[in-house]
């Protein structure tokens, strides 16, 4: 009996608590509808998220009262959410596939990458196969590719980095097969490692590499397929080791969405694009 008496009020209060929670939490939902034209939700690629979040902050301060929420989850999610209407805008860090052409896509930045060597290394170019062989350990001395008799130090990116994914995808490599002597975290570390080691080979974002060379770091950017690794060639789309950073919408953008898309493509955010080591598209 005692047990029964105590058990019921407890359950009752639980139910009451849950009900109270539901009421409390659903209340702000009603006013959310009114705020709709003042609020944008953007979801998608985690590579693009830091850039878009910074663009969003600048957009918010230029348009008082507007709120832009940026959420991550990957390019596919960006596509799905934009299509289903969960988000107003999706972020996709690759070109849209054939099945995704129903979406409108807008280029906001390019992500290009360059293979870098030490400036004193006499090697002027490497073929695709040579890069693959060096990274898989089949070639371990520079003389095998026309350089000095010097051991090659392979510098790879840490797991999870977007540049690693881009590199692996381009050379169709599996990270397990890469025999690296040094694993670095970010671009700066990659630059420092190669600049400090005449036998090293690495890869970093093209924006970083160009910037560092201009600032006197002893680096050399290798051309790929005969095309020089420059931000200009990334911008005009001719450099192969690059990918576009797009934002996508389901329909032709209108109102606030259009305002944001235009803003993200304008020169007002060029410095933000560069700050993330991306290449601003031609305007």
């Amino acid at each position: 009996m005692v047990i029964q008496n105590l058990r019921l009020p407890f359950l009752d209060s639980c139910v009451a608590l849950l009900a109270a929670c539901a009421v409390l939490l659903s209340a702000p939902d009603a006013s959310a509808q009114e705020k709709q034209d003042k609020k944008l939700t953007i979801t998608g690629a985690s590579t693009a998220a830091p850039l878009v979040a910074e663009i969003a902050k600048r957009f918010e301060s230029a348009n008082p009262g507007v709120r832009v929420d940026v959420q991550t989850g990957g390019s596919s999610r960006g596509v799905n959410d934009a299509r289903s209407g969960v988000s107003d805008i999706g972020m996709v860090s690759r070109a849209l596939s054939k099945e995704e052409k129903d979406l409108k896509s807008f280029l906001i930045a390019n992500d290009g990458m360059s293979v870098i060597l030490h400036k004193t290394n006499p090697v002027q170019a490497l073929t695709r196969e040579q890069v693959i062989d060096i990274y898989t350990g089949k070639i371990s001395n520079w003389k095998e590719v026309g350089g000095k008799d010097q051991k090659i130090t392979v510098v790879n990116k840490a797991e999870g980095r977007s540049t690693l994914e881009l590199f692996l995808a381009f050379f169709k490599l599996n990270n397990r097969d890469i025999k690296a002597q040094v694993v670095v975290g970010d671009n700066q570390q990659g630059v420092k490692t190669v600049a400090g080691n005449p036998g090293a080979i690495g890869y970093v974002s093209i924006g970083t590499a160009e910037f560092e060379v201009e600032n006197g770091q002893p680096l050399k950017l290798l051309p790929l397929g005969g095309i020089a690794a420059t931000t200009a060639n990334v911008r005009n789309g001719s450099f192969p080791l690059a990918r576009p950073i797009n934002i996508v919408t389901k329909n032709e953008p209108l109102g606030l969405v259009k305002k944001f898309v235009d803003f993200a493509q304008s020169t007002a955010v060029t410095d933000l694009v560069k700050e993330q080591y991306f290449v601003p598209p031609a305007r």
Partner: peptide, 24 residues
């Protein structure tokens, strides 16, 4: 408010070390 989205420390650390060059 509690209905706002908010980034937690662990998410921030993850983002800085994975998606932000120079965020180490």
């Amino acid at each position: 408010s509690l209905m706002d989205s908010g980034r937690s420390l662990a998410v921030h650390i993850y983002d800085l070390s994975m998606n932000v060059s120079g965020g180490d």
